[in-house]
Design a protein around this nucleic acid. Structure first.
Length: 884
RNA sequence: GGGCGGUUAGCUCAGCUGGUUCAGAGCACCUGCCUUACAAGCAGGGGGUCACUGGUUCGAAUCCAGUACCGCCCACCA
């Protein structure tokens, strides 16, 4: 046995054991006869780096997977990354831009080469970082959403839904991100209340020849830069104020284009001026009004958010610059009536934070109706449970209102939509160009391969990640519901638990459920555990710009991965946001050190094979055995309810308070004395159980000590050591020990108050013989006191206290201020009398006695009896003290 | 605007379908200790009208209603 350092050093331990686990393939899983326990990782962005949110999430995942492994299940945690089309593409675009290259210049193929290079260079860093955290992922199964097999799955899925009639292409108003230059789905738009202005503009009535009369109407708009695209002015047909406008034409300010006044119920009479400018090309509702009234669509904003030549004025200006300028022009032209401050919700792109521009364009959509209905049923029926449950409401609301999913993106990094256009503009959808050619030739036999043009768009990244729980095992399955699942899929699917943030409940969780139900006819996981968002100490979200996000790797470097894991878990109850505080990680590090030193203590004992355990040691061993079982049951219960931080706290207290502060102190031999064999062996076996109990949370230090505990075979690991099981125990054992500790606390309290050194042996008198005698050795050992149960307290001076109903006194001849003691006792007596009065009040209440359950009444009677007994002894004590 | 959740100690939270001497935990704080495993430690201690108001009940932190504040999700009033 090597010398153990006085402090635990994580740095020297963690990499060593991670390597060991890798070398012995401890994380790898293959289907076998055991029950599977499966988790698929929420795939991080391939080019992302580890942040505190990942740490929280993956720590939880790892705790669950390690727990399952020790419970004897065949645990499989599939890792991987997501290609994150918008995020990655914009990074590559930025990089090229720095080199003076634009993506249009080099074209799709060349661009993708750069993108793949980028991916190879930066991709998977995050997976390396997860290793530092101790994550026991099956790295042999690492997947990437854009690897060939998974891309094929995505394409097959597209073709499948297209042929099913659920995918369609349509010209719609979509959310256009002028920075990323792509459409995004409704879910990727974040509405934020934004301060702006309400501009009241005069539109003069036309005389019929394109000249203004002196009459005018007033519209109110937040977007004056779009007036050049106006197609009409709309009023409510019931609005008497505007009857005179019927059939009139008005002139758009500045450009003097004539537009009609139309009527539509959509316009609210009591909002704004009751006159609405209709701009079909740049507003969703206006577009719909336009459809109803056959209005022309005039688009004046280009993809970058700049005014184009159709605007006639301010051409080339950015929309926000144009807004400022046009306001001035309107003012000068006499069209600006007034400007009000106004706050309204504005849509921002989730990815780029650019203000979303509603834009009319041809996009691909997936019908949600049936999928949403199925996926709602999965959760409502409880086949998939949400933890915490409150998210079911959120989920239901979304599922009941799900709109068709815009799945096309005007990007290159992603799976390209397998639609192939014929020269006449019609198209076919097939998984491969060959199949597409065949299909096209069925329409027109003349068609050659080079006549076909594939759709330029790629698919939304979520359109690949929604297949994740299926495709990581069997990429052939999605898109082919009739395909017989391969061995892996049949064994590992459905997965057990999913741990993720609530921010992607719709993006990802809901859609995985849809895909799982559609292709497997079964939910993809049994439980979804939603973590909170990691915030800083004062509640702000962690962000790069605030600089309040620590680098997890630095923390691991400083405190060790075990400490970081503990720190995150300590404050993480499900569904609550996490207020990150480095102090918690320090607490974790302190715990590591505590574990380390408790081992050092025991390992430092000299063992005398012939000696017998002391009385105190015998009692302590019996007690701790029971205590351990009790804790195991509690821990199991907590895990079962996904109360991971509670499970951790239970173990933490078991280790620190019960094992270290109570048990070890009870069995500790006198200085320089050996310990007997039985006590020694039992203690180490308790310690081993504790290590196993904590291992899922603190994998490294537990492995280090477990390996040191005994000779282990090469390749053996605590990872597969069976978790400690609870055994039947006698509750009285726990109860009596607790009473002994209360007596000990009483003695210690007296010492503290009177500054009596711990080394000085005291005498503790216990009145009567009812106090459980078997734990008296504990009282003596831990209180460093001699216990006397014989005889009364007559003529003895000391400080008294009560343990339950047992009267005790620390003998302190000549050191007691009698008056003080009398006052203290008097106070205690009054307290007890009040308590008794309360209990008796209840018991004398007719309605309580007749209504309350028998057990409750019984308990009240016991309280009464206990109080009476205490009062009696206090009174006699008082009397005695006064006589002295 | 609609919906959901929350408010318990200085901080972060637990307290399940009302009744264990129910007001708890961890951290922080205060006091005393460098007692030969650990000062990243040991021993002891203080601290809360359970947001507010009313109701139901023999009994409410717990159930109901309303109020206030906080947070989240959804949402097209220009």
């Amino acid at each position: 046995m090597k010398e153990l350092a006085a402090k635990y050093s994580a740095a020297q331990v963690e990499d060593k054991w991670y390597q060991y686990w890798l070398e012995h393939k401890c994380f790898h899983s293959e289907p076998n006869e055991k029950e599977p326990y499966t988790i698929v990782i929420p795939p991080p962005n391939v080019t992302g780096i580890l942040h505190m949110g990942h740490v929280l999430n993956n720590t939880l995942n790892d705790v669950l997977i390690r727990k399952a492994r020790m419970d004897g299940k065949n645990a499989c945690w599939v890792p991987g990354t997501d290609h994150a089309s918008i995020a990655t593409e914009s990074k590559v675009v930025a990089k090229l831009k720095a080199m003076g290259i634009s993506k249009e210049e080099i074209g799709r193929e060349e661009f993708l080469k750069h993108a793949w290079e980028w991916k190879e260079e930066h991709g998977g860093i995050i997976l390396q970082q997860l290793r530092k955290l101790g994550c026991s992922c099956d790295w042999d199964r690492t997947r990437f959403t854009m690897e060939p097999e998974l891309s094929e799955a995505v394409i097959n899925t597209f073709v499948y839904f297209y042929k099913k009639g659920w995918i369609y292409k349509g010209v719609r108003m979509v959310n256009w991100d002028p920075e990323a230059l792509t459409a995004v789905s409704d879910d990727e738009v974040i509405h934020k209340d934004t301060k702006s202005h309400f501009y009241h503009l005069k539109y003069f009535i036309s005389d019929g020849n394109g000249h203004p009369t002196d009459k005018y109407l007033v519209i109110a708009t937040t977007r004056p830069e779009t007036i050049m695209a106006d197609a009409a002015i709309c009023v409510n047909p019931k609005d008497e104020r505007h009857f005179w406008l019927k059939g009139k034409k008005v002139l758009i300010p500045l450009i003097n284009r004539e537009i009609p006044v139309i009527e539509d119920d959509y316009v609210e009479m009591d909002f704004g001026t009751g006159c609405l400018k209709v701009t079909p090309a740049h507003d969703v509702h206006d577009y719909e009004i336009g459809l109803r009234h056959n209005l022309p669509v005039l688009e004046i904003i280009d993809d970058h958010g700049r005014l184009n030549e159709k605007a006639l004025i301010l051409v080339g200006e950015d929309r926000f610059v144009a807004r400022k300028k046009i306001v001035k022009m309107l003012e000068e032209a006499g069209n600006l009536l007034k400007v009000e401050d106004y706050t309204s919700p504005v849509g921002y792109s989730e990815r780029t934070d650019a203000v979303i521009e509603p834009k009319l364009s041809a996009q691909w959509f997936l019908k949600m109706e049936t999928l949403a209905r199925m996926a709602l049923e999965t959760v409502e029926s409880g086949r998939t449970k949400f933890i915490p449950e409150k998210y079911v409401n959120t989920y239901r609301h979304w599922m009941e209102n799900a709109r068709d999913w815009c799945i096309s993106r005007q990007l290159w990094w992603g799976q390209r939509i397998p639609a192939y256009y014929l020269p006449d503009g019609s198209y076919v959808v097939e998984a491969t160009p060959e199949a597409a050619l065949k299909a096209a030739q069925a329409i027109n036999p003349e068609i050659k391969a080079e006549d076909l043009r594939q759709d330029e768009d790629v698919l939304d990244t979520w359109f690949s990640s929604w297949l994740w729980p299926v495709s990581v095992f069997d990429p052939q399955k999605p898109g082919h519901p009739d395909h017989k699942p391969n061995r892996d899929l049949a064994y590992y699917y459905p997965t057990n638990d999913l741990v993720t943030g609530p921010d992607i409940i719709f993006f990802w969780v809901a859609r995985m459920i849809m895909a799982g139900e559609e292709f497997m006819g079964k939910e993809p996981f049994s439980n979804v555990y939603f973590t909170g968002i990691v915030r800083d100490k004062i509640g702000r979200k962690m962000s790069k710009t605030l600089g309040n996000s620590p680098n997890p790797l630095d923390l691991i470097q400083t405190y060790g991965a075990d400490a970081v894991r503990i720190g995150m878990l300590l404050c993480s109850s499900a569904g609550n946001d996490i207020f990150y505080d480095e102090a918690q990680i320090k607490q974790g590090a302190a715990f590591c050190n505590k574990i380390w030193n408790s081992y050092r203590l025991v390992k430092g004992f000299a063992v005398d094979a012939s000696a017998q355990p002391s009385q105190a040691a015998r009692v302590a061993m019996e007690w701790f055995k029971a205590k351990l079982s009790e804790a195991v049951l509690q821990v199991e219960d907590h895990y079962g309810k996904f109360r991971i931080s509670d499970a951790l706290m239970t173990i933490y207290k078991l280790f620190w308070d019960d094992y270290c502060s109570s048990y070890l102190e009870a069995i500790k031999p006198a200085f320089g004395q050996p310990v007997d064999r039985l006590t020694y062996d039992t203690t180490l076996s308790f310690f081993e159980d504790l290590l196993k109990l904590i291992h899922p949370v603190m994998p490294f230090i537990t492995e280090e000590l477990w390996q040191d505990l005994a000779e282990r075979e090469e390749g053996e690991t605590i990872m597969f050591a069976p978790a400690p099981k609870a055994v039947a125990y006698d509750a009285a054992v726990l109860e009596h020990f607790a009473m002994a500790m209360e007596a000990v606390n009483g003695v210690r309290g007296v010492r503290n108050q009177r500054n009596i050194a711990p080394k000085e042996v005291l005498t503790l008198k216990i009145k009567g013989s009812a106090f459980p005698s078997e734990v008296i050795p504990i009282v003596e050992k831990m209180g460093n006191a001699k216990v006397e149960t014989a005889g009364g307290f007559e003529g003895v001076q000391g400080v008294g206290f009560l343990v339950r109903t047992h009267e005790m006194m620390v003998v302190l001849d000549g050191m007691v201020n009698l008056q003080e003691e009398i006052e203290k006792t008097q106070k205690e007596l009054e307290h007890q009398q009040k308590f008794l009065a309360g209990v008796r009040g209840k018991l004398s209440n007719e309605r309580f006695v007749s209504n309350a359950p028998a057990a409750v009444i019984e308990n009240e009677r016991k309280k009464e009896a206990d109080a009476l007994s205490r009062i009696e002894s206090l009174e006699s004590k008082l009397k005695q003290m006064k006589e002295n």
